Amino acid sequence: MSDTNTIRRVFERNVEALEKRPSIGQSTGSTTVRLRNGTTCVITNGSKELVCDVGREQGGNDEGPGPGVLERGALGSCLAMGYSMWAAYLDIPVDHIEVHVESDFDARAMFGVGKNPPGFKEIRYDVMIESEADEETLQELIEKADAHSPVLDDFTRPVPVKRRVHIQPSRGLHTAGE
Results as ranks from 00 to 15, higher is better:
85 M>C: 03
156 T>I: 14
55 G>Y: 00
147 A>I: 14
9 R>I: 08
124 R>P: 08
62 D>A: 10
68 G>D: 08
22 P>W: 07
82 G>V: 02
148 H>G: 14
147 A>K: 15
93 P>K: 07
149 S>K: 11
108 R>E: 04
21 R>E: 12
76 G>V: 00
44 T>W: 02
129 I>V: 13
87 A>F: 01
143 E>G: 11
122 E>K: 12
127 V>N: 01
76 G>D: 00
150 P>I: 00
71 E>W: 08
3 D>A: 08
53 D>M: 04
176 A>K: 04
88 A>K: 00
59 G>F: 01
128 M>Y: 06
72 R>N: 03
135 E>P: 02
137 T>I: 12
52 C>I: 01
143 E>H: 09
131 S>L: 08
50 L>K: 03
77 S>F: 01
115 K>M: 03
6 T>C: 00
142 I>N: 10
54 V>K: 01
23 S>I: 12
98 E>D: 04
74 A>Y: 03
95 D>C: 10
107 A>S: 06
173 L>R: 11
25 G>E: 05
145 A>P: 13
36 R>G: 10
77 S>V: 01
132 E>R: 11
120 F>S: 13
70 L>E: 10
156 T>L: 15
148 H>K: 14
51 V>G: 11
83 Y>C: 00
74 A>P: 08
164 R>I: 15
61 N>R: 07
159 V>G: 06
7 I>Q: 03
113 V>C: 01
